[in-house]
Write a protein that binds this DNA or RNA. Structure first.
Lengths: 137, 137
DNA sequence: CTGGCTGCAAATCTTTTGCATCCTG
DNA sequence: CAGGATGCAAAAGATTTGCAGCCAG
């Protein structure tokens, strides 16, 4: 509610619905999942609005885009630094709650059969730093 | 060359071209980049063949699909466990050569302005383990 | 000769874009 | 009332699918 206001964004029912849907959501939904879920309650809402809003929220740092599935972005309202467990079969994504020592807590190891993990560093390469490009992931 | 034979795959000029293109390639190309690069030398090659071949190679574990850009898959012929540096602006992906202590070598820190890193664990969730689904990433 | 592979085209899926209309501030 | 936001539809980009014909084993 005040989140939008604090960001200098107009407060529309659609945006409230999207924010409300994302708030506390740990499912890491895709844009389409959000749209499908909201379109029941708000039949008037369009995909473009969902995409626009998600882009805005991403740019303002209020959600994070996840590149987990090849074809679709998924969104994480938790922008605090944290890690994920990803099921390679169904693409379920769950948050890692413990601090990462590159080995997980017993509970998480019980719930997921870990095949491996990856560490991705991100940042700016020399060329882009010179060009002052500064796009977010 | 013998790689294909070893995998029980038919040895076609197209596949040889793709394998040859990928061999030692550290650019983490997309399917389309591979297609565009090969279509000059092999004007007859179709996208479907590139996609088919990449899928086959992925399933047999000879390349790895990378979910780095939301819209396209990228492919890594290096299937050994390793990490990546990803430029958030231009999406350049370079291999991390040093063992990861969750801090990088001085050279890599010089070449990339590190903004952050992420660690992704992957594996099978309870539900998928029961169903014996076993799709690769 | 046969099944796997290729190439074309059409279909699909996700996301983006253009644009007229609407409505918040 | 103005400019940002919405909704529709069409476009774009990457990938998948269907299918007829081809060719490696």
């Amino acid at each position: 509610m005040e989140k939008l206001r604090a960001l200098g964004l107009k407060l529309t029912p659609q945006r409230l619905a999207i924010l409300q849907y994302l708030d506390g959501n740990t499912e890491h939904p895709s844009a389409d999942a959000i749209y499908k879920s909201l379109t029941r309650k708000y039949p008037t809402m369009s995909r473009a609005t969902v995409y626009n809003t998600l882009e805005t929220l991403t740019n303002r740092g209020h959600v994070r885009e996840l590149a987990i599935e090849a074809r679709k972005k998924r969104y994480d309202p938790n922008t605090k630094h944290h890690h994920h467990l990803i099921c390679t079969a169904c693409k379920k994504v769950v948050d890692v709650r413990s601090a990462v020592n590159v080995c997980l807590s017993p509970e998480e190891q019980r719930d997921f059969e870990i095949i491996g993990h990856r560490i991705e560093f991100y940042g700016l390469c020399q060329a882009c730093k010179k060009k002052r490009i500064n796009k977010t992931m």
